[in-house]
Simulated assay, not measured.
Amino acid sequence: MSRPAGRDKQPAAAATRRTPSRRQHRRNRRTSGSWWIPWLFLAPALILFVYFKFIPMAQAISMSVQDVRPYLGNLYVGAANYTEILSSDGFRAATWNTILLAVGQTFGSMILGFALALLVEGQTRKLTFIRSAAFLPVVVPIAVVAELWRIMYHPTGDGLLNQLLGLVGLGPSGFINDPDTSLASIVVTGIWRGAPYDMMIFLAGLAGIDRGLYEAAIVDGASVRQRIRHVTLPGLRAVFAILFVLAAVRGFRAFTEVFLLTNGGPNGSTEVVMTLIYKLGFEQNRLGVASAGAVLLFVATLVLTVCVQLLRRRRVA
């Protein structure tokens, strides 16, 4: 005997009524109070970010179109500050030095970090100690790093690095005291401090590569260089993209090491955008022009980040 059609529909309708919709589930979560718990944990960090980062950013954008006059009131000048700083020879020279510094530190730290990651990859206790020791330059305060390298860069023959150069028959170098080598010396300092950080990111990326690919490459007779080229590098494309952005931003925002080692000298050979902004704002009291330079630096960093992400998505697609 066949069952009436109405009886078959009743259980289905009851099941539909018993199954809560997504809107009801979201409403139940809100009424139960669980939705605000993650925001409660994030609140301290968000408050600090808003107060010390986002509010100053908004104030810098506002000051960049004003003639800042403390205690007298600011005057709106439009794009005059941008025109002044873009037409400045010092800003163009500082921009070129910043690009050279960022490129040198970015590729130098990534290459050295990748090499270190290949050398210390593994799970033994000795490698754990070596990785921890190699990571020390990252956790040491940048002021200590700058002072250490300033001592090693002593321009006389008694300096540490000059003594090492003397062992191979090379004459003493002025390093940060010579306009021809000062910027390169700062690049070396940045590479020494940034490479261990890149090494740790590369180690995390190497751990995610399928070991079966290496075994298959060994069976096919691939050499170490071929395994790195055809297995390791393709598996680290996303890591390279992330590190490129991080290292480039770090290079564009270089300030402390330059300020402590050379303060933009000698003869402006190491003047970068950050040190120029500092001098315009706090030494020359031209806060509007300094704010315009800071906004331009932010826009350049944002454009670089967006371009790298677009290129990465296009390659993935």
Rank of each mutant, 00 (worst) to 15 (best):
M1C: 09
R3V: 00
P4A: 08
Q10A: 03
W39G: 10
L40K: 12
F41K: 09
P44W: 12
L48Y: 13
I55H: 09
A58W: 15
L72W: 00
N74F: 03
N74S: 15
A79P: 05
T83I: 13
E84N: 05
S88C: 11
D89L: 14
G90C: 02
F91D: 11
G104Y: 03
Q105W: 00
G108N: 06
S109I: 02
V120G: 11
E121A: 14
I130C: 03
A134H: 00
L136R: 03
P137C: 12
V139F: 02
A146P: 11
W149M: 05
W149C: 01
Y153P: 01
G157F: 05
L164K: 08
L165E: 04
L165K: 15
G166S: 06
P172D: 01
G174C: 02
G174A: 03
F175P: 12
I176Q: 13
I176Y: 05
N177S: 14
T181K: 07
S182R: 02
I191K: 05
G194S: 06
P196Q: 06
D198C: 15
D198T: 06
G208T: 11
Y214N: 11
Y214H: 14
A217T: 13
G221K: 09
S223Q: 11
R229Q: 13
H230R: 14
V231P: 12
T232C: 01
P234Q: 10
G235Y: 04
G235A: 06
G235C: 05
R237D: 14
V239I: 14
A248D: 08
A248E: 15
R250W: 07
T256H: 03
E257C: 03
L261I: 01
N263F: 05
M274Y: 00
K279N: 13
F282I: 08
Q284Y: 09
V289R: 03
V289D: 10
S291D: 10
S291H: 15
V295M: 05
L296V: 11
V299P: 08
A300G: 10
L302W: 00
R313G: 07
R315P: 04
V316Y: 06
